[in-house]
Amino acid sequence: MAFKIASSPHVSRNLHTATVMQRVILCLLPGLVVQCVFFGWGTLIQVMLAIAVALGSEAAVMKLRRRNPAAALGDNSAMLTAVLLGVAIPPLAPWWLIVIGTVFAIVIVKQLYGGLGHNLFNPAMAAYVLLLISYPVQMTSWVAPSTVAQQAPDLLASLQAIFGSLASSELKLYSLGIDGVSMATPLDTLKTDLALGLTSSESLSKPIFDGSTGVGWFWVNLAYLAGGLVLLKLKAIRWQISTGILVALFVCASVGWMLGPDNHASPLLHLFSGATMLAAFFIATDPVTAATSNRGRFLFGALIGMLVYFIRTFGGYPDAFAFAVLLANLCAPFIDYYVRPRTYGHRAGS
């Protein structure tokens, strides 16, 4: 009787890539829901559109590479990229924006580098940066939060806005606040105000802020934080990168705020504005493009946190996670080379 030969171990944990990706997507849902609550159906439509485009382009590329498309689609990584890009771009951005971004993310950033596991840059963030640089107007036109907006877009209006059948004058309505002033994101508002010579407390008294953080954005970030904590609990991600980002951002923001509370944003505003929690738990933790050792990951996260603070405070862009993540991606191989754990039985440094 002949038996089967295989190398040990003969058991394996039943936790596969597809499951991990699926869990990450599920943990994104609370944040997505809160975003829809504050900014209308647009985000959901963008996410759906992105998923469709992502799966289509992934399958097409796999076909071209003569690989099995089902295997690639089955790992849920393309879907995760699509969801991340979908929640990152303005809810009422025209449809072609997300299409261009998603195709770029999947085809150029991911598949041309060799597919899953081989890409150097975070696909969603590389696509976001491409769109931000190429279409700055569309990429910075955020909808005013529904609680303080003059007019909130319903499902039909969102669809019309995205697919281009809405007059631009009507579209503009959705970005107006109660006071009829166009509403940028809280970080953008603060940056503009500080540049205009206002103090941060004066800026924070505007309707887009509720006194300390941005209206809506605080809850969005809180929802992503909750989702992230679930991910940590499930061990789909490890704590080092997220902690590194949040600690570095908090420390930098605290120092800046203590030195000049009038012309700096508070640590609270930094932590609960823009893409902070989304990036800290869902974007920067993409293992493919991050450092791999524990210490290396903490450094990787801390680098992102610092870069975010400096770009937000001194750079030309109100939010900075996409740039910071890409820059840290570049440093990941370097970090991995120099930051290695001490092997059992070896002295430090050997």
């Binding site: 990584s77 293992p287 493919v288």
Partner: peptide, 8 residues
């Protein structure tokens, strides 16, 4: 065997 995603 599938692609390594460097999950660590």
């Amino acid at each position: 065997e599938k692609a390594c995603i460097r999950c660590g």
